[in-house]
């Protein structure tokens, strides 16, 4: 989805009043379920429950509990304005959201403050993070199709997992169908995403993903396709992994 690339960057450190107003507007846009980010809002509940359920299975939590992720340290890479960070914080997780876009981080902080949610947002990249930081759960949702070197990126992600930790990755497959649906349809026909959001040759096949993960002693324990049903206007899990898909990886 690459929402993080759709806004220009600004310096996070020195923020003046007009900047605050801009971030506030951006924050509202991000969080408006019928606004510019509507496609992300549509797919968000599905991603959220998939990650939550996988985490509850892995860490033996009751999925019906209102704080099922309490005490778990979670890293959301490419967090945008915090559409996943906020619900996972409410579920008890200690969430660190990182995004290379300073405007996204400013918008995320603003929204979390308004809701009195304590979330550690940082304008940074995994490569720049302290190599000693460790997490129970690392999320890389719709980011690997944008990084320069997928292998190096996943190596870095894997190194940040605590022993027994969990990684969830979602991305786009690379084949003729994903080209047709992921780029032609999403960017040109439906205009869900700005043109140029995705480069098809950067898409990653499940086999390539599995290969990178296994090098880091991580095994894919669950995988699912994510398909859009135009009749119900909703996203559902599917065995069809040709376009969008998610995987859960754990230590072998």
């Amino acid at each position: 989805m690459a929402m993080q690339s759709s806004y220009s960057d600004a310096s996070a450190s020195s923020v003046d009043a007009s900047e605050v107003a801009k971030f506030s507007k951006l924050s509202e846009e991000w969080w408006d379920p019928r606004g510019k980010m509507a496609p992300l809002h549509k797919i968000n509940p599905l991603r959220l429950t998939y990650i939550r359920d996988a985490a509850c299975r892995k860490f033996d939590r009751n999925v019906r509990s209102l704080n099922c992720l309490s005490g778990l340290r979670m890293l959301d890479i490419g967090c945008g304005a915090g559409l996943l960070c906020e619900p996972f914080t409410r579920l008890g997780a200690q969430v660190i959201g990182i995004d290379p876009s300073a405007t996204n981080i400013a918008a995320a902080k603003l929204h979390a403050d308004k809701g009195h949610l304590s979330i550690d947002y940082r304008c940074t990249t995994v490569e720049e993070m302290d190599v000693r930081e460790r997490f129970d759960i690392v999320l890389a949702m719709e980011v690997i199709e944008h990084v320069v070197d997928v292998g190096a990126f996943l190596d870095r992600c894997a190194s940040m997992l605590k022993p027994g930790g969990l990684m969830v990755v979602s991305t786009l497959n690379r084949n003729w169908k994903s080209f047709a649906l992921g780029i032609v349809a999403a960017e040109y026909v439906l205009r869900w995403l700005p043109r140029g959001t995705h480069q098809w040759d950067k898409f990653v096949t499940p086999d390539e993903l599995a290969h990178h993960l296994s090098r880091n002693k991580l095994e894919i324990t669950e995988q699912s396709g994510v398909v859009y049903n135009p009749l119900g206007d909703r996203w559902t899990l599917s065995s069809d992994m040709d376009v969008n898909y998610m995987v859960v990886a754990e230590e072998v």
């Binding site: 509940p45 939550r52 019906r64 509990s65 209102l66 099922c68 906020e86 619900p87 409410r90």
Partner: peptide
Amino acid sequence: VVRDAGMNGADI
């Protein structure tokens, strides 16, 4: 209603 919303991390 609160449980259904809360278990999805929604603002109850």
